[in-house]
Nucleic acid binder design. Structure first.
Lengths: 303, 303
DNA sequence: GCCGCGTGATATTCTTTGACTATCACATCG
DNA sequence: CGATGTGATAGTCAAAGAATATCACGCGGC
């Protein structure tokens, strides 16, 4: 039994004539006859009574045709579901974002992406790179916004922009008026950083090796740069933040942002997704949307 | 898209592993892979995400699999309906019977046939041979009980039994005490018969040509031999009835039944059905049931 | 860090299936 | 009685579906 046979059966039932039914099915009459015979044989039941003059349904044939129609309708719904799903910009996109990017990029990103792909709701997971990598691989998220370096088998990576780091000190700090600060100078201060589960802390430590030598650094619990910013404002020390975390929105009278002396340390932000994730258009829409945001301290990479 | 592809898709969705799914479908893994690819291609949608390590459903894939299952369920119901219909002794049998047989045979036939085929309800149409032939050919009835001669293209005929004719006269009639009456003698009397739409009247007229010469004969309106019997009881004339119409059940003090002198005229009763009517078992059950009735004046024919 | 294992994809071959054309057998109708 | 229209049958062929053999690629153990 296959869908063609059911389609032919319904056609014969409606036309009550093999030739006309065959025409309607775009096949020859013998092909139709043998198809119906094959189905009747397989089902072990006579569906039609053929006299020379006319075709009629047997009692059981009537029930079978009715049910065959139901099968064909449900099959048609498969096609219609597929039609709906054809647009890659339709359907939930599960997006992972590292803690040190999410709060500073998502508020701007979401409206832009929504304008570009209005039928693609986001489900956002904010976490660490390690966690997001695992969830990316097991399919719990589809695309991740993270900082390089990052590589993983089966995972595609698209670098998007570079973002400089900046020093944040209390407003009353002796560095508050400085034009720029060298990385080595950070060794003089207590530098508050997120714990080492966060790539950003490691990148700061790498860019400013002197920081690592100061005891008490890098011990902050929690996952939020905002906590650190508050601690700095309260005079617990200084910190280094990515530029997007220092946009006007986060300005405070208690804090001063001071750039690094050139070359300022920075991180490269990228998208990552499973190579097998089929919705390239969705990834592209996300990348384009991120590129159109004008974020402070950010240099776009060529597409 | 065909049912196999849907079946394979559901299997992969359940196993989340092409090899195991292929095994469950009794096909090779490559065959499964290509089948799924073909379906995805046709639908223009990716159903599964294949990483080296595991298979998972895309968003649209989940909906498609669910719908595919629905299609398969409905297809399975086609098979189950066919299974039910496989028994030819299940389902309505539309039976046509001529007026001069129905009232005398059906009351005995129905319980016997019901015992033989309890799941085969009868729909009975009582009519003339001409009308029944038309209804048989256009499918309004399936099998007909009638009197020979009868032949029609595409119609199968099975003779069942011979039934003698008998003369019926009022109890006070001068023939009431006779042992037998010759056909020619009927010319002496007013013989009441059904109108010529009924084969029985014609057969009587043929067996007793003298009857035709008496004016006023064969004019009875209506389709019932009982009307004629009542007319005879009331003294309007005499008549000829088939033996089954004279069983004990219909005996009356006002009437006497007198046999013809040998060789008594008779009619041959038969079944007729469309050659294309597939339920030979149902016809056979009907024939066997009729043979087991012990009807008066009836001689069974060899099967 | 390399090798073996398990995964799905691909290439090639072969069988099966579905469809075509040509033709038949049969009933109907002028 | 021949013309017409019906579904069935015969013979042929191309396309679909499946099998075997093999590949490419992650992963996990040593």
């Amino acid at each position: 039994m296959n869908l063609s046979e059911l389609r032919y059966t319904v056609a014969v039932a409606q036309e009550r004539n093999f030739r006309r039914a065959a025409e309607r099915c775009f096949i020859s009459q013998p092909a139709l006859s043998t198809a119906i015979q094959k189905l009747e044989e397989e089902l072990g039941v006579q569906i039609f009574e053929r006299s020379r003059t006319e075709v009629s349904l047997t009692g059981i044939g009537e029930r079978l045709v009715e049910q065959a129609q139901r099968v064909l309708e449900e099959a048609e719904r498969v096609r219609s579901i597929a039609r709906e799903g054809r647009d890659q910009l339709v359907g939930v996109l599960r997006l992972g974002v590292i803690h040190t990017i999410a709060p500073y990029v998502l508020p701007d990103l979401i409206p832009v992406l929504h304008a570009r792909a209005p039928e693609m709701p986001l489900e956002v997971e904010e976490s660490t790179t390690a966690q997001l990598e695992a969830h990316l691989k097991n399919g719990q998220v589809d695309v991740v916004i993270l900082a390089l370096p990052f590589a993983s088998p089966g995972i595609e990576v698209l670098p998007l922009y570079d973002e400089v780091f900046e020093v944040v000190v209390p407003a009353a700090h002796r560095w508050a008026r400085k034009r720029a600060i060298g990385a080595a100078q950070l060794a003089e201060e207590r530098v508050l950083l997120l714990n080492s589960g966060h790539c950003f802390s490691n990148q700061v430590a790498e860019a400013c090796p002197e920081v690592g030598r100061v005891p008490g650094n890098g011990m902050t619990p929690g996952n939020s740069l905002e906590t650190i910013r508050n601690m700095v404002a309260s005079g617990s020390g200084v910190t280094v933040l990515p530029a997007t975390a220092n946009s006007d929105k986060y300005r405070s009278a208690l804090l001063c942002v001071v750039p690094f002396t050139a070359p300022a340390p920075s991180r490269r932000v990228a998208l990552a997704w499973r190579r097998s994730f089929g919705r390239e258009k969705a990834v592209e829409a996300l990348a384009q949307s991120l590129r159109t945001l004008s974020l402070p301290g950010v240099t776009l990479l060529p597409a």
